[in-house]
């Protein structure tokens, strides 16, 4: 059982949780993830570690409330417990070879680039960042990026905050003007990462992406998260979650991400009784 130390609602469907898990904080590094179960018959769902604090024993995760399991989590109050929390899983981000990095986060994927911005800031190795979302309400960790990055750009689909348009448009503009940036680290929905990798390729920059594949165990046991990288089958949970963007077969990954969409779409919500269309 793990206690919810803090619960912060960022918007209607985006909630940040700090979960008490001192064992996880001891070896957690940026780029790794955890798997949690809300209750005894819950699914195992993976979330990237946004922050890990050895002193408080708290692990921060950012959750978009989209399906039955995340709705069950959202129904939990601060101070209540969830049944399981395991990690840190996967490999840590490796940006050692990068001279200057631009972080690109789309929607909830911003949770993955936030710890990178913080880690690089703490090392005195400044980076740029582009954060995109549908509207201003869905932009997360604004202050962190403003504080930690050389340049922090924000994009919204509706223009309610920052640049009106997609992160890829902004990225092209930045790469055009700043040739010192050699690496793009992108995290977000698969089609967005695919588009970002195309832009990076066009400007001849390296790209790194973090895949949010479907998982069960998170330790290499089931192969549910398998993805083709450079013609070889890799497991996002143990070989990743981060891979060289140019080598990832995004079309296959996009197809595999729909594996249970039919089942989930017709899921009858146990909490509200309504049939959720999770599209």
């Amino acid at each position: 059982m793990n206690k919810i130390l803090k619960k912060t609602k960022f918007s209607e469907n985006v909630v940040e949780y700090v979960i008490e898990a001192p064992d996880v904080t001891r070896h957690a590094k940026a780029g790794q993830f955890i798997i949690l179960r809300v209750d005894n018959d819950g699914e195992r769902i993976p979330f990237t570690i946004v922050n890990s604090d050895k002193e408080t024993g708290g692990v921060t995760i950012l959750v978009q409330t989209v399906g039955a399991s995340t709705m069950k989590l959202a129904a939990k109050k601060q101070g209540e417990f969830i049944s399981d929390f395991v990690g840190p899983l996967g490999t840590a981000t490796n940006l050692h070879d990068a001279k200057k990095v631009i972080l690109v986060g789309g929607g909830i994927g911003t949770a993955v680039i936030a710890p990178q911005a913080k880690a690089m800031f703490e090392k005195g190795n400044y980076c740029d960042s582009i954060v995109g979302a549908r509207n201003e309400e869905l932009i997360v960790y604004k202050e962190l990026f403003n504080k930690c990055c050389d340049h922090a750009y924000f994009c919204t689909d509706d223009g309610s905050f920052g640049f009106k348009g997609y992160v890829t448009q902004k990225l092209a503009e930045v790469l055009e003007n700043d040739t010192t940036i050699d690496t793009v680290f992108a995290v977000g929905p698969l089609p967005m990462m695919k588009a970002v990798v195309e832009v990076a390729k066009k400007y001849n920059r390296k790209s790194l992406v973090s895949l949010n594949s479907l998982m069960v165990d998170g330790t290499g046991m089931c192969g549910c998260c398998r993805v083709t990288v450079g013609g070889k089958v890799k497991y996002a949970c143990v070989d990743g979650p981060e891979f060289n963007g140019e080598l990832v077969d995004f079309d296959e990954a996009i197809n595999r991400s729909k594996s249970f969409s039919e089942v989930e779409r017709n899921h009858v919500c146990n909490l509200t009784g309504e049939v959720k269309n999770h599209g």
């Binding site: 069960v216 165990d217 330790t219 290499g220 046991m221 089931c222 192969g223 549910c224 398998r226 993805v227 083709t228 089958v233 296959e252 197809n255 595999r256 729909k258 594996s259």
Partner: peptide, 22 residues
């Protein structure tokens, strides 16, 4: 021994193809 072998054949990553473990 929890790591599943796959066949390494074409189409194995299509939706609907599972390791027995999963």
């Amino acid at each position: 021994a929890g790591l599943p072998y796959f066949l390494g054949i074409e189409g194995e990553n299509l939706r609907g193809v599972f390791s027995a473990n999963e």
